[in-house]
């Protein structure tokens, strides 16, 4: 199990990996995918600025698993645009979400590299790491930070924060698990063979 999983992340002897144009392009393409998924997720199930049932989180976690920090940057960048397009959050609020968006994106990428989990979710251990570190923890971070920002901006009352947190956390975790699992399972085998795949954080 460990041997198979580690082969995805292990850098072979003599293998040179360095950031290239393809990573910048992938950053842009992933941001574009995030814009579409984030915008239409919000428009299709418009629960407003708390972004409940927001499938964008799945894109954020997947991005950092496949492309390390490039995915992390995309995770921070695309909600700025998708929130504006869907009307689910104004610019200052979106900017305030930025640190949490990067963090909630990067957690999954860090955990998969830290514990050498296979992005193709080949066994129970991979699934466990994905559900905990790719779905539950990032959404808890996002919901906590996001609801705090809404209070800070005076858009909800302190008393409403817990309700908002729970709605946000539960509503985002479900699409993250459903969408993310499917994409990881079926697309990862292609991605790990592509030149943009990052075994490390930048290449």
């Amino acid at each position: 199990m460990e041997g198979q999983a580690s082969s995805v992340w292990t850098i072979e002897e003599g293998e040179v990996r360095k950031p290239g144009i393809v990573h910048v392009v992938m950053l842009a393409l992933f941001t574009g995918i995030g814009i579409v998924v984030g915008t239409f997720g919000s428009l299709a199930v418009p629960i407003g600025f708390v972004s409940a049932f927001w499938p964008g989180q799945a894109v954020q976690s997947i991005g950092s698993i496949w492309y390390g920090w490039w995915g992390g940057i995309a995770a921070g960048l695309f909600p700025l645009i998708s929130n504006s397009l869907s009307g689910s959050a104004p610019l200052p609020v979106s900017i305030a979400y930025l640190p949490a968006n990067i963090l909630q994106g990067m957690v999954a990428g860090w955990a998969f590299r830290r514990w050498k989990a296979d992005p193709s979710l080949k066994d129970g251990r991979d699934w466990g790491i994905w559900i905990l570190w790719g779905s539950l923890v990032p959404n808890a971070i996002g919901a906590a930070w996001g609801s705090t920002m809404l209070v800070a901006f005076g858009l909800i009352t302190q008393a409403a924060q817990l309700t908002t947190f729970l709605g946000w956390f539960i509503g985002n975790t479900i699409p993250t698990i459903v969408l993310g699992s499917l994409v990881l399972k079926y697309v990862s085998p292609l991605v790990v063979r592509s030149k943009a795949f990052c075994k490390g954080y930048w290449a």
Binding site: L29, I33, I35, V36
Partner: peptide, 11 residues
């Protein structure tokens, strides 16, 4: 450039 390409790739 990344922002431009992102928007275009969304399309």
């Amino acid at each position: 450039y990344v922002v431009g390409l992102s928007i275009r790739s969304a399309g």
